[in-house]
Nucleic acid binder design. Structure first.
Length: 707
DNA sequence: CTGTTGAAATTTTTT
DNA sequence: ATTTCAACAG
């Protein structure tokens, strides 16, 4: 087995720290990797190196934060392996392609959990065909229980379903009891402790009866599986090596799973950056990464500090931002990309101004050779990009938005999915209720009755044959019976099943929603992509675990050769990089979000979030601060604009002391030198009009008149 | 029992 | 602006 030359070749592109990480043996390894330090490359090479050392690919598990990064990593692992094989081909050292055929296991915790539970689930009494509830479904089910327990109408207001779900989820993911969770995270719900307990008990029972798992269950059951003597052992044997990306954003339950996978840390590699932990709202805890060496005493620590992404001026600015953090982060990022401009802080008059300026700059950069795909606009909350989206659409600039409301979460898609899911799992009460309530003349009472009938008949839709539908659903009902009968057999090819469901649903769609036509087109898209899945079951789980962001996303390759701009929430931008990055709405109240200024822990997380946004930039970085925000006061008539507005403050994460790391401009192109005067942006002549005829301000004015 | 209407409360980030 | 809840008409 003489693979030395090829491997040496593989390693020569790495710096000494990266090399150390890649060639580390099988003791527990913690890689603390600052932003842009080649963390993905290191992880990919490590996997390749392990395979070259004789570990079978199928025995390597790669846990990533998103499906997107899983795909990217697997692609790159394949690439490196191919290189390796080509290099060793003549030495005939690789043997009969042990490698090319079988792939590394890769995916999110939830996706991997699903695969393992389908395979080993019966060891802990899980039905083969369990369906998965997304967040909204889980809330619906908890709402059913909530009203059954008559918690909905108490004299004092009981927490809403979303809040209940958050509390439950927090308990599961942080592996804490209800009371401490209430005390620390939901203090205003503390008085409901007993009721919440009853609620959660009943909720768990209902999931069990329905043969359904929610997101939290996927982790919970995976963890339970590892505790099972036989199944746990089988899984541990299956994975000799486990690597986890973005470890700073894992929670206690996920840490427990890792412990179950690698009881003594053998074969475990963990990568992360404590300065980039931004998911505490999902019960992620930075303690996981900080305490790993305590958990596994023999842990080797490797720190990556050489940044390959950004220019020196950008790094200087971002380093200053994170230095302000209450907890000190010891890494000091440096780069050899010395040349480059300081990041630009642009003070705009208002959001319209910001929109115009951002678009103008994007087009300029594109003209100078940076295609749209290599540019991204980042923002704190999904709706912050609404005006920009409207303007981009108007100007026919293609864009792709990540984060925010998912296409899959729209009502009509959920309706169709509920129908398919009920066929897959007739015990899925939430799906059944959703479907039945669509029928005219059927309300909660009749729907509940029908669900009960279905349950008594052990999920056979024959049970509905005898039921007499209300007048309004005379035609729908027989059609539904026929449809469910066909789908339940599951004999027909999947695209045809979706087609039948779609045809049945069409009239209901028109009855329930105003704009039926575009919605119907979305459903056609679903039918189109159905052919890509092996089975209805895998289609349903994959779509709930990896929700496509848009129909374009679903369509997949079709759009790929077109160039499009990236819009993304900062959270969704994690781990990615672009040549030009525009951070918009960098104003107190947005960054940090008003919702998160309660305690300093939260503010610190918002700071890291801002840091994540800034460190996405390779060459060009823009930060925008609109000064004036229009206030929407319902009831008060607004004539024209400017009469009801407020002034915003630049984000507190860019205090005066670090502004020298930025170039500063107002949106009319003037460079500002002295301390920023809030009013300096006013009354100055506007810069020349853009190449298009109207500015967004004109548009906004015209839409105001319609209201 | 269903479907509609109006008033009141809430308003982020995601697997 | 959207979601939730209670009250009322059919």
């Amino acid at each position: 087995m003489n693979k030395r030359p090829a491997i040496e070749q593989l390693l020569c592109t790495l710096n000494p720290q990266q090399k150390q990480a890649v060639t580390h043996g099988d003791g527990p390894l913690l890689i603390v990797a600052g932003a842009g330090t080649g963390k993905t490359a290191t992880l990919v090479h490590r996997v390749a190196w392990q395979i070259a050392q004789g570990v079978h690919p199928a025995k390597i598990l790669l846990l990533t934060f998103t499906r997107r990064s899983a795909k990217e990593m697997l692609r790159r692992v394949d690439g490196v392996l191919r290189d390796l094989q080509n290099a060793t081909a003549d030495a005939n050292a690789t043997g009969p392609n042990a490698v090319a055929g079988s792939r590394v296991w890769g995916g999110t915790f939830h996706a991997i959990a699903t695969r393992l539970l389908r395979r080993y689930g019966n060891a802990i009494g899980l039905p083969q065909g369990f369906t998965i509830h997304d967040r909204a479904d889980s809330e619906d089910l908890i709402n059913v229980v909530r009203s059954e327990l008559r918690l909905a109408k108490t004299d004092r207001r009981f927490p809403l379903k979303g809040t209940c779900m958050s509390i439950y989820s927090r308990c599961v993911n942080s592996r804490q009891k209800l009371l401490p969770v209430l005390k620390t995270v939901f203090p205003w719900c503390e008085e409901w402790q007993d009721e919440l307990k009853r609620l959660f008990d009943a909720y768990v029972d209902r999931k069990e009866e329905a043969g359904v798992l929610d997101y939290d269950d996927l982790l919970l059951f995976w963890n339970a599986l590892l505790a099972d003597d036989e199944a746990g052992e089988a899984i541990r044997r299956q994975f000799e090596r486990v690597a986890v990306d973005e470890y700073q954003d894992t929670n206690s339950l996920q840490a427990a799973i890792l412990h179950g996978l690698c009881p003594h840390g053998k074969g475990l590699t963990v990568v992360g950056d404590d300065a980039q932990s931004i998911y505490s709202f999902r019960a992620a805890t930075v303690r996981n990464i900080l305490d790993l060496p305590k958990q596994f005493p023999h842990t080797t620590l490797v720190t990556l500090e050489q940044n390959y992404r950004s220019t020196q001026p950008i790094l200087e600015a971002t380093n200053r931002v994170i230095e302000q953090a209450r907890e000190r982060f010891t890494k000091n990022l440096w780069t050899t990309r010395a040349q480059g401009r300081r990041p630009l802080m642009v003070t705009c008059e208002d959001e319209d101004d910001q929109t115009d300026f951002v678009i103008e700059r994007i087009l300029e950069h594109r003209e100078s050779g940076i295609e749209l795909q290599r540019q991204a606009v980042l923002f704190r909350a999904s709706h912050h990009s609404m005006m920009l989206e409207a303007e981009l659409t108007r100007r026919n600039i293609p864009f792709h938005k990540y984060g925010g409301l998912k296409f899959i979460e729209t009502a009509h898609i959920k309706d169709l999915m509920a129908l398919l899911r009920l066929a897959e799992n007739p015990r899925d009460v939430v799906s059944a209720m959703r479907l039945l309530l669509l029928l005219p003349g059927v309300g909660p009472a009749k729907a509940r009755k029908l669900v009960e009938m279905l349950g008594d008949a052990a999920g056979s839709f024959q049970a509905w044959k005898a039921w007499k539908p209300p007048q309004a659903s005379k035609t729908h009902w027989p059609a539904l019976l026929k449809l469910m009968d066909t789908l339940a057999h599951g004999k027909k090819p999947l695209p045809q099943q979706v087609h039948l469901a779609r045809v049945f649903y069409r009239p209901l769609l028109e009855e329930h929603y105003d704009n039926a036509a575009p919605r119907a087109r979305d459903l056609e898209q679903i039918e189109q992509i159905a052919a890509r899945y092996d089975s209805r079951r895998s289609m349903l789980s994959e779509i709930t675990l990896d929700p496509p962001n848009s129909t374009q996303d679903l369509a997949g390759q079709a759009e790929l050769d077109d160039d499009y701009l990236i819009l993304s929430t900062i959270h969704s931008a994690k781990g990615l990089e672009w040549d030009a990055v525009y951070v918009i709405h960098a104003v107190d109240g947005n960054i940090p979000s008003d919702m998160a200024t309660g305690d300093s822990e939260q503010v610190e997380e918002e700071r890291r979030l801002f840091y994540v946004a800034l460190t996405r930039a390779k060459t060009w970085l823009y930060v925008f601060c609109p000064l004036r925000y229009y206030r929407y006061r319902p009831g008060q008539h607004r004539s024209g604009h400017g009469d009801s507005h407020g002034y915003a403050q630049r984000t507190r994460f860019l205090p005066d002391g670090i502004l020298d790391k930025f170039e500063r401009q107002t949106s009319d192109g003037r460079v500002v030198d002295g301390p920023l005067d809030v009013h300096s942006a006013h009354g100055v002549s506007r810069r020349p009009k853009l190449r298009t005829d109207l500015t967004s301000k004109d548009i906004r004015r015209s839409t105001k008149d319609i209201w």
